[in-house]
Write a protein that binds this DNA or RNA. Structure first.
Lengths: 139, 139
DNA sequence: TGATATTGTTGATATTATCAACTATATCAT
DNA sequence: ATGATATAGTTGATAATATCAACAATATCA
């Protein structure tokens, strides 16, 4: 049996997680990789709610609720009930959260750069379209 | 910030894990996804040892030791000390393990097919080389 | 208005991952 | 040959990630 494609992906993801963990540990915060992903999503999403994070990360809402709670307890974000829909809470950064975010964005960019080193645009485009097609195939 | 490539990969891996879990549950054994990956590696590796699995899965040896122990307790594999090096244990399938493997290989193949549906060889080749290059970049 | 759906929280638990300490065996340099 | 160092594997402790079910509050729709 020729080893399935997915194994190469497992290896890549493993390496990525380790790289990410090093960065996070280097900054010595009470955070893990999923917290960081949440922060990035909150930043990138207009009036982000917990449910937005659920959609974008494709994770269970229970998991997300806990990550958000942690981030609030750590004082990086706060939530306010939406005026249009009181079930929703809009997430936003505190001052210390914004400061943290700056650092994380810089780190993320650096990781992304080293990830893509030696690859040209055509390769990356093909890669991305294949990834998305595969996700679609499994939906 | 354009969302980093890795997010698309996270989504894909998540979908893959869910697909895999469905298949495994359908087989209704005391196994999880990592057990299944171990079995595949044992099958694909001549005189496979725990350390081979560690290398190929890029996981901690403690984690692998426990997965192997589970598989033995479930009666799917057995281990025998290598004659050349008594620290090593060669892993092999029991009869019921072989039977299980047949089913898992079929399932794996099916998943792999649906994963690659609608993608041509050139795309898949580029994809794989990019994945490997990225792994290399993070090493 | 009542039935149904959505958003988010919590409890319980399973799965996956990490690190350190340890045993046994092997290897290597002297 | 012996002692130092390295490797293979095990176990304990714990952290990180994920899943499912039950629930409260609010929204939507017939």
């Amino acid at each position: 049996m020729d080893t399935p494609i997915i194994n190469n992906l497992f290896t890549l993801m493993q390496r990525y997680r380790m790289t990410m963990r090093d960065v996070i540990n280097a900054n010595e915060l009470g955070l893990n990789a999923m917290h960081v992903r949440c922060l990035h999503i909150i930043e990138a999403t207009e009036a982000c709610t917990a449910n937005d994070i659920v959609q974008k990360m494709q994770r269970d809402k229970a998991q997300v609720a806990r990550l958000v709670k942690d981030l609030m307890n750590l004082g990086f974000i706060e939530k306010n009930a939406s005026k249009e829909d009181k079930r929703r809470f809009i997430l936003s950064f505190t001052e210390s959260g914004s400061a943290l975010l700056m650092k994380l964005l810089a780190a993320q960019k650096e990781i992304n750069n080293s990830l893509c080193k030696g690859l040209n645009k055509a390769q990356l485009d093909t890669f991305l379209s294949v990834v998305d097609k595969m996700s679609e195939n499994l939906k």
